[in-house]
Write a protein that binds this DNA or RNA. Structure first.
Lengths: 344, 344
DNA sequence: CTGAAAGCGCTAACAC
DNA sequence: GTGTTAGCGCTTTCAG
């Protein structure tokens, strides 16, 4: 009843062949006669033989597996990127092992260990937002397991066989603001998160530079710093509307805050975009479900996953004695103009 | 430079000890002297030794890994369930291997093979919606690898060590409709997907029974069958509004269709819920972002994941000679009443 | 075309 | 406390 799984040895005994012949037959080597192959396959099928990857990988010294570590497996962004990773990895013949850190350095460290213990051939990581110490990546680097950071990348940790893929947040924000100005807006407010996080820093700078380049002086009273969610977005909007000179547009660094602003405006009887235009960032699925539909920036999540895997693949394929220089890929975001900013 | 990973053998040589002692020291066995343990640990640290799980698992005959197969890794529902699975599995000391079938039986089959080859100790599956043939699960069952289906379960495939976790869709729909009737609605329309899919069947039946139980005769012209998304939801609504006797409520079998209906109503200048109430199903994140906020049914995704793992754990822990009878867990959904149906 | 033999890195009897 | 030995299931020289 316990039905031990059939092994190559079992097949060998049953067919009165050696294990090597069985192994070769199953691998479809050309130096095995068709007749034997047929017999082997038939029996394998009959016993529903399943090769033991553990043993094969141990013997070969190759697992054909990539490790992925993300802060969350939920939400919109990361699952999308992971999907890109999984798809591209499958295309290249790799399996993928996925872990989440839950934004916790402790778990991040534990998962990196787990991936290393599992003998993955390369690792793709997006950092927990509390990660300040990178010692757990030392082992990865020192054993020359290629490492690609994506989206949330490290400034302080580089080296051979360590690369990064990120989005050009600056560019994305710049495009949004330039578009708003083109629509005739001049007093453009900006909701931003903490500037020590690279995405917010980039988006904020893009906002400032676009303003200046178009000859507008950004009014510091129109930039609001803080948490960015639906609630705070609404609160920030309310605050701004109380000021004497109110804005004619809002660019929020994420979509949730933009929706909050949108709802507050509607609640106060203001029209969007006629009175005040609103734009977000990330192209969350709900941006097409609110009214008016929200202008935002698409981050090409799949592309990020795909690029990350390709980068890894390059390091894997490269000459092992001549490690790859660190390389950064910066992806171009895409402005999606929708109703919430279309004045003309 | 190539920096081969340190092995137990390396440690043994360096310290002039046997591999068994090293192995025991690292595992913190009590029959190794503290002094030796210290030396071993120190060197292991220095060489940043990483145990090779492959070898250990091969030797032990246990991988401590559960396999998960979902139709998608994106969207809202599945990542949430997978999160529940991963969290509970971690709590129980299991690793998790996640695959997606992309709703394709071919890939489903391939992934099941992959999981079996990887020697997972149990498998959690939500079926691709095109899966009609279950032969690929035969191998799983025949080798007594415990199997838990969740959300999308099979009717035709059962056996020892095969269980299922699902949502009581009937109950959820019943609650929604009972609530609508309580709000004074009598002409309640229903948007449903194809009835051969168990979730739609259950929800439809819940709708019918709730009506009848409350003394209302469901009008067949108010039930619309078809694809359920934002676009079709709007279209179905438009169609219904053209009929002479229009509904005073709509219960859509998913949230996207409900939002479509909502938008159509607003576009035609009707008030929700005053003129027509609207309810959906699934508690998608966007249901609190639309206006009015959408009444819906929460499926307790995490709970589903957690239950599935616990069920698996029970089978794993059970007497291997006395296989566990198939068991089904049916989870209770939770009605979330929001603005879109609050008439009173 | 097939077989014998070695070994991937680790663990677990079994000895002493 | 520590060492010896065997072997998990597979692949891969090397011989024939």
């Amino acid at each position: 009843m316990a039905n031990r799984r059939a092994s190559i040895t079992d097949l060998a005994k049953a067919l009165n062949l050696s294990t090597s012949t069985i192994s070769r037959a199953l691998a479809d080597h050309n130096d095995v006669s068709e007749a034997t192959k047929k017999r082997v396959r038939a029996l394998a099928e009959e016993l529903s033989y399943q090769p033991n990857q553990l043993a094969a990988a141990l013997r070969r010294g190759r697992t054909n597996t990539l490790g992925v570590l993300v802060p969350h497996i939920t939400g919109h962004f990361f699952p999308q990127v992971v999907n890109g990773i999984a798809t591209e990895a499958a295309r290249l013949g790799f399996n993928v092992m996925i872990c989440q850190s839950n934004e916790d350095v402790k778990q991040e460290r534990k998962n990196i260990d787990l991936l290393m213990n599992s003998q993955v051939e390369g690792i793709l990581v997006s950092l927990a937002n509390t990660t300040k110490d990178f010692s757990h990546f030392e082992a990865v680097r020192s054993q020359n397991v290629p490492l690609v950071f994506f989206d949330r990348v490290v400034e302080g940790f580089r080296g051979d066989n360590v690369s990064a893929v990120m989005l050009d947040d600056y560019q994305g924000a710049y495009q949004v603001v330039a578009h708003l100005i083109e629509q005739g807006c001049t007093r453009i407010a900006h909701f931003t998160g903490p500037l020590h996080i690279n995405i917010h820093k980039g988006r904020h700078q893009g906002y400032l530079d676009a303003m200046k380049d178009k000859g507008l002086q950004p009014d510091p009273r129109l930039t609001v710093f803080g948490e960015l969610n639906q609630k705070t977005g609404a609160a920030y909007m309310r605050k701004l509307l109380k000021q004497p000179e109110r804005p004619d547009a809002v660019f929020a660094s994420n979509d949730l805050a933009a929706v909050g602003a949108l709802q507050e405006l509607k609640a106060q009887g203001l029209r969007v975009p006629e009175d005040i235009a609103v734009a977000g960032f990330s192209n969350e699925p709900f941006t097409t479900l609110v009214e008016p539909q929200l202008t935002t920036v698409d981050q090409g999540c799949d592309t990020m996953g795909i690029s990350a895997v390709r980068l890894l693949q390059k390091m894997l394929a490269g000459n092992p004695d001549r490690l790859m220089q660190p390389r950064n890929v910066v992806l171009k975001p895409k402005l999606l103009v929708r109703e919430s900013t279309m004045k003309k």
